[in-house]
């Protein structure tokens, strides 16, 4: 994974929500923390190309998010805060297959890919279930499966445990810790990112701290105090 921000800046309705930022992300597990409105979600969306830089450049795997959006999105999967909105077809297995719809795969290969990813997350029993009927934890795992079936190089998760009860939170945290993929996780859950390789802390649209989890979380606590 090679993600680069080069003086990248984001503006929304004339207001700067992320000030010019230059950094390179190469670690396998990266956490992003900050108070509400600090710019961390904008930062994450810039990696996937959902938010394009108003100035500067963001690249993923050498592809510019402003010019090669399709290639960037194939490399960088994104899990939204509300997994309800992530899954766009009514039946889980159909939604997961939708992500593969134009890959040059036979019907059998697609079915195997769908079954495989559901089995990987232990939710094979949910294949034929209506998405509307799934619990919060099941939905979050389903959202993970729907993105990872396309095998992105990096997975960005925006507050993946935010709307979950204690049991489902534990389940999703365990799943995240077990992921083999490169991950970037935005979270208020400091326990979740405590063991990550690198943590970024945003404050008022600027990168306030960047380094090992212990140091950055300590800085975050000072900001939040």
């Amino acid at each position: 994974m090679d993600i680069r921000f080069e003086q990248a800046e984001a503006r929304f309705e004339g207001r700067t929500v992320l000030h010019p930022l230059t950094l390179s992300l190469t670690e396998r597990r990266i956490g992003v923390i900050g108070l509400n409105g600090s710019g961390k979600t904008t930062f994450a969306r810039m990696i996937n190309g959902l938010v394009l830089p108003a100035a500067g450049k963001v690249s993923v795997g050498g592809f510019d998010t402003s010019k090669d959006g399709d290639r960037v999105r194939a490399l960088a999967g994104f899990i939204f805060q509300n997994p309800q909105n992530q899954i766009v077809l009514p039946v889980l297995k159909e939604d997961i297959a939708l992500g593969l719809s134009t890959r040059k795969l036979s019907k059998t290969e697609k079915q195997e890919a769908v079954s495989g990813i559901l089995a990987r997350f232990g939710i094979g029993r949910l294949a034929d279930r209506r998405v509307h009927e799934l619990s919060g934890g099941e939905l979050q795992l389903a959202a993970l499966a729907s993105v990872l079936v396309t095998r992105p190089d990096v997975l960005i998760m925006d507050e993946p445990t935010n709307q979950l009860d204690l049991k489902n939170r534990g389940l999703v945290e365990k799943t995240i810790h077990g992921l083999e993929e490169n991950i970037i996780v935005i979270s208020h859950d400091l326990d979740l990112i405590g063991g990550f390789d690198r943590v970024l802390c945003f404050h008022e649209g600027r990168l306030a701290a960047d380094g090992p989890p212990g140091d950055v979380i300590a800085r975050y606590r000072e900001i939040a105090a």
Binding site: F78, N85, L98, S101, T150
Partner: peptide, 19 residues
């Protein structure tokens, strides 16, 4: 508001661009 988020999810998953 939900529709905006769903549209973003469709973009993020590259569903339309792949077709």
């Amino acid at each position: 508001r939900n529709a905006d988020e769903i549209a973003a999810a469709i973009d993020a998953r590259g569903i339309r661009s792949q077709k």
